[in-house]
Nucleic acid binder design. Structure first.
Length: 572
RNA sequence: CGGGGCGUGGCGCAGUCUGGUAGCGCACCUGCUUUGGGAGCAGGGAGUCGGAGGUUCGAAUCCUCUCGCCCCGACCA
């Protein structure tokens, strides 16, 4: 593509509204333009990158035996009423009416549609398993869209759904796609982790997220430094490590006045005691499954956070929330900030870490007062469990390694759905014994635009984007330093044709602007290889080759250019 | 949903407090010079100041309403 003819509006300054690098660079490099909050148009360069991601995804999905379908964006309410999600999905689902006042939505996901498609056709176990996928636009009316393509309202997603006669078969397929996803993100040239994750509101029994590692990621991920365990911190289990110390040599409890010192930081600073030696006490209001309410206390080391999901699971609760101030005072006798486990009449749960605190500090359940020399087992007896949010240095639950903490961008998510949709929507088949059973389902998603954005978050410098070769909009970028110089243009034109004939995608900057201007644009756009053609090197039959990802420019004989580029971008 | 902020040429902003008839940088067009890291000079085009209503001799500026966009928070002791 000749730059003089390409719709590629690059920007020197970045629009004020862009917050994260990928968003800024996509705007500056002329890949996207905003149409409304969380809604973007893709410009030619954006389309090229998107197609690269889609191509890899499509290829690996097909290879894994999945078949491509396309489902509608606008879906009638009936299907959602059947699954129960018309009411459950809430405001994230954009609803609309047609001229006959019939209700529809812009599909935020397609479980209902695919289940409907399959239930109409699949009758027998002989037709299973089946894996169908699509690459389609979805709409979720996010509370707060942000970060460009990273968290838009309208976005392109590859979603796949598999259908099985048996659990074993479903799990086998789940493993297959896990492998396929690993191939996909490897081929995209991204550093990523497949992590154990919470299944979330979509439901199901287990799930993995694919996280592209980048400091700007919205999610926190722990991974073991010595085995391959990795998990979203929301999910991560922690291995037991703290060993209980002997209780004997701890001095007696002592009250200390701590006027106005409520937070962990304040108490820690006031008493000159490490945050880790403080015992944080949270009072939670728990909604049990049978709708009864109960209050519980949760203890954590002062420097750690509670993982609410772990507590919910431990108690088998329906939901829970922090107790209101009035409830805290009624139950403990003190306002929030001065609460402690000693003498509490409600059930007390503690994270394992608390067992390691000897001679700790807690609230005294008395205004402006804390207790010193508190010891678990002597002064209070909690039920211990793994309750804290995992962090760096915590023990791995699978081996004796420890966690490191990284940030990640969720680009893929796979779930085992089970029979949630097939049961509610009557998608059944007849097994070998002629018995009717609900189909067992799994679903598998990949955010296409988000993957491109994540690639930028992970691969950029001050000058702009540094595309991993497989996602790059072009393989190489020819810069003709001076278009008025005839020898230069002769070589540039010839190379442009030759490289294209050899199957390379070539961007040719033939604009009448100064060299520096072209170099800046080239760095911004981030094509892997730049070929600089100028009068002084052309005389000796060579041109300059420079890789976007570091490295010095080097002279290459004109006849060797194609081969060199193919070596770098890994084609041919 | 709660809190905060912003809408002024394509982009980034000043001007608003203290009303007087719109300005700067980038981009764009023309010419000359320049030509390896976002050139210089000269000339030029482009804005119903988000929209509606009001106050006033006069409104980008003050008041009311409205629309749009952005940020922070939504499990914190």
């Amino acid at each position: 593509m000749r730059l003089t003819r390409m719709f590629l509006p690059t920007l020197k300054e970045s629009p004020a509204t862009a917050e994260v690098v990928s968003h800024k660079l996509m705007l500056r490099a002329g890949m996207i333009r905003k149409v409304a909050a969380g809604i973007y148009s893709l410009l030619p360069l954006g389309v090229r990158v998107t197609r690269k991601v889609e191509g890899i995804v499509r290829d690996e999905m097909n290879r894994a035996g999945a078949q491509e379908v396309v489902m509608p964006v606008v879906v009638p309410s009936e299907l959602w009423l059947e699954s129960g999600r018309w009411d459950d999905y809430g405001k994230e689902m954009l609803r609309l009416k047609d001229r006959g006042d019939r209700e529809f939505c812009m599909a935020p996901t397609h479980e209902e549609v695919i289940t409907d498609m399959v239930r109409g056709e699949v009758r027998s176990y002989k037709q299973l398993p089946l894996n169908l996928y699509q690459i389609q636009t979805k709409f979720r009316d996010e509370i707060r869209p942000r970060f460009g393509l990273m968290r838009g309202r309208e976005f392109v997603m590859k979603d796949a759904y598999s259908f099985h006669a048996t659990e074993e078969c479903a799990e086998r397929e789940y493993r297959e796609i896990l492998k396929a996803y690993t191939n996909i993100f490897k081929r995209c040239g991204l550093e990523f982790r497949a992590v154990e994750a919470e299944a979330g509101p979509i439901g199901g029994s287990f799930s993995h997220e694919f996280m592209v590692l980048a400091d700007t990621g919205e999610d926190a991920v722990v991974s073991c430094t010595s085995c391959d365990y990795a998990a979203n911190v929301e999910r991560a289990e922690i291995g037991a490590s703290e060993v209980a110390a002997a209780v004997v040599d701890i001095p007696a409890l002592e009250k200390v006045s701590t006027p106005g010192q409520k937070t962990i930081e304040e108490v820690s600073g006031f008493l000159k005691i490490e945050q880790a030696s403080l015992i944080k006490t949270l009072i939670y209001k728990v909604q049990k499954q049978d709708k009864k309410e109960e209050f519980v206390a949760v203890l954590l080391c002062g420097d750690r956070e509670l993982n609410v999901v772990k507590l919910v699971r431990l108690l088998g609760a329906g939901s829970m929330e922090l107790a209101e101030d009035v409830d805290v005072e009624r139950i403990t006798g003190a306002p929030a900030g001065f609460v402690g486990p000693v003498g509490l009449k409600i059930p007390v749960y503690a994270d394992w870490g608390v067992d390691g605190i000897r001679g700790g500090v807690t609230g005294a359940n008395e205004l402006n007062t804390h207790l010193l020399n508190v010891a678990s087992g002597r002064d209070f007896t909690p039920s211990y469990a793994d309750l804290r949010l995992a962090g760096a240095g915590d023990a791995c639950p699978r081996c004796d390694g420890v966690f490191e903490l990284r940030r990640g961008i969720e680009v893929g998510h796979i779930f085992k759905l089970g029979t949630k949709y097939s049961e509610s929507m009557g998608a059944t088949f007849l097994d070998e014994n002629g018995r009717e059973k609900p189909l067992i389902m799994c679903c598998y998603g990949i955010g296409i635009g988000r993957t491109a954005a994540a690639a930028i978050e992970q691969n950029h410098d001050d000058g702009g984007i540094i595309w991993p070769a497989p996602l790059a909009p072009f393989d190489c970028h020819i810069v003709a330093v001076n278009i008025k110089d005839e020898p230069t243009m002769k070589v540039a034109d010839a190379l442009y044709s030759e490289l294209q004939e050899k199957g390379l995608e070539v961007l040719f900057d033939d604009r009448k602007v100064r060299a520096g201007f072209k170099f800046k644009d080239a760095d911004l756009i981030g094509v892997p290889v730049r070929i600089t053609i100028s009068a002084n090197t052309v005389v000796e039959g060579s041109v300059e080759l420079k890789e976007r990802r570091g490295g010095e420019a080097r002279l290459v004989k004109i006849e060797d250019v194609a081969e060199e580029i193919q070596k770098i971008v890994g084609e041919g």
